[in-house]
Nucleic acid binder design. Structure first.
Lengths: 338, 338
DNA sequence: GAAACTGGTTTGATCGTTCAAATGCGTGTA
DNA sequence: TACACGCATTTGAACGATCAAACCAGTTTC
């Protein structure tokens, strides 16, 4: 393993100076056609690759995005982050950006990590996931003039359009509405909603989508008896589903705020009712129930777009419309009980 | 945002030279006690952080590990990589290493990525996941003198102990054996195994664990009727489970090679039989069936240990014993059918 | 009493790249 | 002829750290 070639080696091989080589790489426009080709050839011949750290030292830019790997969420939906990460990595690579991971147990720790990564010039932008109301992280980043994009809209009162806070989110309301409408179209009328306890912006939006669809279909009366909430576990969801069946008065379908909740409903009702979940996790595919897909590749594209087109574009956010993935005709889970 | 402090600033503040500051950071032992303290104080006061890129440029080390984010595996077990990644990131951070992600669709692409990352001094080691028989990636890395560790043993014939190929793997055989034994202890005798089609090293090992336990318990006769295979989907697993029930002659428990397969068995038998899966995925937790946990934190620790203690330690591999996670007393999934 | 050693610290050079200013050269213009 | 101008390219310096060698004051050794 001999020493790797540097700009200097390339320059000598092509009979030009260091800077010209650098220019061919960074601003090819200002180099004369024939010299450019000569340098390109030398680069290929020698197999030259710019040394990332040297470049970063000089430019004070890292071309690297930092993202925190969430502490393990137990619950089926944990894999959304996984899929998002994959989409992000793939698309970032295409525009010459790298993804650097870090972990942090609490928001304070995460902020400390921000400091470390910035000071070391390790990253020059952050992607935040799972933002919540009054998130201290975004405050800190804005205050310290860092570029970042959140996956998840800011749930504070009036900063939804604050240009300093770029965000991408999935329109959960529209997704759940579409899911509900697809059931309505197939003749279902007593469609229950299995949601999370009120208070989380995301959850309330999803419940809103169901309500919207029901009201628009003229089924707005007595919706309370069709609404149940549970924390995001299958056990809890089963209990809530049982209550839904009991009070729902001829319940004939269920829309859930997540695949975990949907799984609870599927298991509890033994597959007798059509159930539509949210997130299109592998579990929904495995169990064969429908689900709303977040289109994480679009989210990733939006994130990168906002990151790379710094401050330029308006608005500084994107709302991605999710896609309903319909599966089978809701066959009973246990065939011999159809 | 004024300029960040450098070694120079710290040196001046502490009334010493650059190099002394550097020594305090990298080899504190050679600096006199009082000077060391003075420098430390200056570092704290100024909030100095070493500039990672400058250090990397000088030392020609990146302190960064490259890992490929697998293309989305549909199937429930996809989240193991996710969990491994998390454990790895967390523990790498503790020893000052960072994780850089990249993607590649095919092995050739991955090899191309290796080249790019090495040449740019972006990473100085790789972690490979899901190795397979005759994997070209390990060949390439060995040939190019790169340090790497694979999660998954080399499934070739005789290179299991090749010191150039460091690996960490989970002892699936022991895990499945433990699972089977726990069922035997509780009086079960007709324990079926739901595996993958023969040919994958991992799958064969797991099946072997079940066979070992059964034979050791004196139940080695007619094991064929208790063995069924299916590809890793729930639908397939359900069919295989049905066959198992039909041919198993009083089948009273099932051990499966994965949680996807286990889920199929649980659903198909409607929770009437105890089922033990493999991977301890969120799904097993959600559905409440037992599973064998891979102990990914131990795997991550082993990987880092092998990476950091370069060439020194022998053997150059670790076999992690997984842990059986027992859940509930296998209650029927649908209570009113107990 | 000069030479050799020791522990602690400083100095100059260097890693590979890009920035900013300088250079050289051909053209058009006064 | 001289001067300014634009274009393509080169030159010196800098980014922030570490390495290797030099330095310096005290001891110790012969």
């Amino acid at each position: 393993m001999s020493r790797l070639p540097t700009v200097h080696d390339v320059a000598r091989a092509a009979g030009v100076s260091r800077q010209t080589v650098s220019n061919v790489l960074n601003s090819p426009g200002i180099v004369r056609e024939d010299t450019r080709e000569r340098v390109r050839k030398a680069i290929d011949d020698l197999g030259y690759r710019p040394h990332a750290s040297a470049r970063r030292l000089r430019t004070q830019k890292s071309s690297t995005i930092g993202i925190r790997l969430d502490p393990m969420v137990d619950g089926i939906s944990g894999s959304i982050l996984d899929r998002f990460l994959h989409a992000l990595t793939e698309q970032a690579d295409a525009v010459g950006l790298r993804i650097l991971l870090f972990t942090a147990a609490r928001p304070e720790d995460e902020i400390r990590q921000f400091g470390r990564l910035i000071d070391g010039s390790d990253v020059d932008a952050f992607v935040l996931t799972s933002t919540f109301h009054g998130d201290p992280r975004t405050e800190w980043l804005i205050e310290h003039g860092q570029t970042f994009v959140t996956f998840g809209r800011p749930w504070g009162i009036d900063d939804m359009n604050d240009p300093r806070h770029a965000w991408v989110d999935v329109d959960g309301r529209a997704g759940v509405r579409a899911a509900t409408e697809s059931l309505l179209e197939r003749g279902h009328k007593r469609i229950g909603f299995l949601g999370w306890p009120t208070g989380s912006g995301t959850g309330d939006e999803r419940a809103g989508g169901w309500r919207d669809a029901m009201v628009a279909a003229g089924l707005g009366d007595g919706l309370v008896s069709l609404l149940e909430t549970a924390v995001d576990t299958v056990a809890d969801a089963r209990e809530a589903s049982a209550r839904l069946v009991e009070n729902g008065g001829g319940l004939d379908a269920v829309v859930a705020a997540s695949d975990s909740l949907a799984l609870g409903a599927v298991v509890q009702t033994n597959g007798a009712l059509p159930v539509i979940g949210f997130d299109n996790t592998p579990v929904s595919a495995a169990m064969g129930f429908s689900s709303v897909d977040q289109r994480l590749d679009e989210v990733a594209a939006g994130v990168l777009d906002l990151l790379t087109h710094n401050e330029g574009t308006v608005p500084r956010h994107r709302l991605v419309t999710p896609e309903l993935v319909l599966r089978s005709s809701h066959p009973p889970v246990v065939p011999d009980e159809r």
